[in-house]
């Protein structure tokens, strides 16, 4: 996970890693928020109250979490590092899992 654990040739930069992990985390959180807001009137109502439409609030939250978490992870401890293959697996895995959660909920 850190620079010391992964060979320099196989790692990607701290910024690319940080925002990649941020994408994965935000993607999963976003999918879970779909389930939460669709199954809880209170959460849905709160999201409507914030911007006037639950989907607008949802998109805004996603962008804020992605940018903020990416900025933090890129700088944390000189920047988090992973091997390229691990980061690819994280990004692809999060996309598949999030997509499955969302599609599975609405089936």
């Amino acid at each position: 996970m850190t620079t010391h654990q992964a060979g320099a040739a196989d790692t990607v930069s701290a910024k690319v890693t940080g925002y990649g992990i941020s994408y994965a985390v935000t993607s999963i959180l976003s999918a879970l928020l779909v389930v939460l807001k669709e199954s809880n009137e209170g959460v849905h109502g709160l999201m409507v109250a914030i911007t006037g439409h639950h989907w607008v609030t949802h998109g805004l939250l996603d962008v804020i979490v992605f940018v903020a978490l990416g900025a933090v992870l890129s700088r944390m401890g000189g920047g988090i590092r992973m091997t390229g293959n691990a980061l690819i697996a994280t990004v692809v895995g999060a996309t598949v899992i999030s997509g499955a959660i969302i599609a599975g909920y609405f089936i």
Partner: peptide, 15 residues
């Protein structure tokens, strides 16, 4: 499904 998966796609395209 589309309206919510699109949010992931937006972040992926930003990445």
């Amino acid at each position: 499904t589309k309206e919510h998966v699109f949010l992931m796609l937006l972040l992926l395209a930003t990445y």
